[in-house]
Design a protein around this nucleic acid. Structure first.
Lengths: 128, 128, 128, 128
DNA sequence: GTGGTCTAGACCACC
DNA sequence: GTGGTCTAGACCACT
């Protein structure tokens, strides 16, 4: 797990995105213990308060669960992880398509296959 | 022309994006006169200083030109508009593909046709 | 507006409750500007970070809205305020009734009239 | 006897509350032998140190008594149980009424009958 | 002057 | 050692 930040967004928000991605993409697995707040802070080279703010948000989303004196863990509810994954995915696709529409793109065809097994989903847009 | 803003980004930046889009997509046509700063301010319900700031940046990009006595106009250099358009487009496509990679999407196929005349460009990605 | 804290709960949480109550009970009125983060911090004799954490949560609930450079305002959506009020009220009533059940109270009759105009609601419980 | 915990309060405190409730409500009867610390630990799925801590506190209150060789027993002093019961009851009622006042409830009428035999007590509040 | 971010560092309760 | 809280103080962008 590595973390990189730019100056466009607040660091804690970038952390939320990147941690969520690590869970969604399976780098952090369901039920796995995540590094302690202080370890995480070292790892990401960020103050522990900033990490905590980020982890709280990830917990609000539901991807991690806190067990006060034992640490924080990735949720074991796989359906929830999938649900969040789908939400983020379709959100990104919608924003992307809207952006291209605003630029005035004439035709856009998009085929996404989420996993090797799943059938591919298709989105198409032709300018009116 | 309508404008919408959220609280996450500076308003002047959102204005730059939206005005640029209106030029790139042809809503504002090459050579067309642009509303005055005050008209713009009314239209977007934003302080006129903010509009000024935004229009200056759009002018830096080159999409509009100031004629001291007559006001501001969309540039007539169509190649420039196309260049900016291509920059924004490829930027958005790259960011989008990177985002999906991070989520762990398996396969992504993207076909974009910018105008009725242009040939379509194709991007493909299969997870390693 | 005055604020008092005990040591049982985190201060920011008590702030959320008390600020929400001020909005729900009409001390802070819909659309009203609330004190700036720093003024608020002075008022409650608390660090500005603590206030901000609290105000963020109140905003998540929906009772206040932030306008970045102008300040924070009570929402103008009166139905939302009423909805939150009802949620908190029924939550408290349910918890209260459950608590008494656990203690083994034999019979409980509770009549609540929310406003002078509204009809009174009645809750009753007899031990099984 | 079942036990449930949340993350907001110390587990031992939640144990104190729940064990006390079981005694007060008569699930654990006066003079009855209490499960051993280890049995309790299994039952509540909690570390035995935490159970110890909780039982000690319940003993401080007076609801249970330790007999060195035989284990722990619910007190036989029924008046004491009733006294604790009344304390908790009136405490909860007062907090509840205060909470509703803060929300701005107009009128509140509360009738509690503790046991089949006792007369009912009545609390009333009308907003000033 | 407005909200927002981030850090450093101290302290607490729980186990 | 775990998460959580709070403060003090600096800094930033926007209007």
């Amino acid at each position: 797990m590595k973390f990189k930040f730019d100056n466009e967004f607040p660091i804690h928000q970038q952390l939320v995105d990147q941690i969520s991605n690590y869970i969604i993409s399976g780098v952090l697995k369901p039920g796995e213990k995540i590094p302690s707040v202080r370890e995480f802070a070292d790892l990401a080279e960020v103050n522990h308060n900033t990490i905590q703010k980020a982890l709280n948000k990830v917990e609000e989303i539901g991807l991690i669960i806190t067990n006060r004196t034992n640490g924080k863990f990735v949720t074991t509810e796989i359906e929830l992880i999938d649900k969040v994954r789908d939400q983020i995915l379709s959100e990104k696709i919608n924003v992307f398509i809207d952006d291209l529409k605003k630029i005035g793109v004439y035709q856009l065809q998009l085929i996404v296959k989420e996993t090797k097994e799943k059938e591919s989903e298709k989105y198409e847009f032709i300018r009116s």
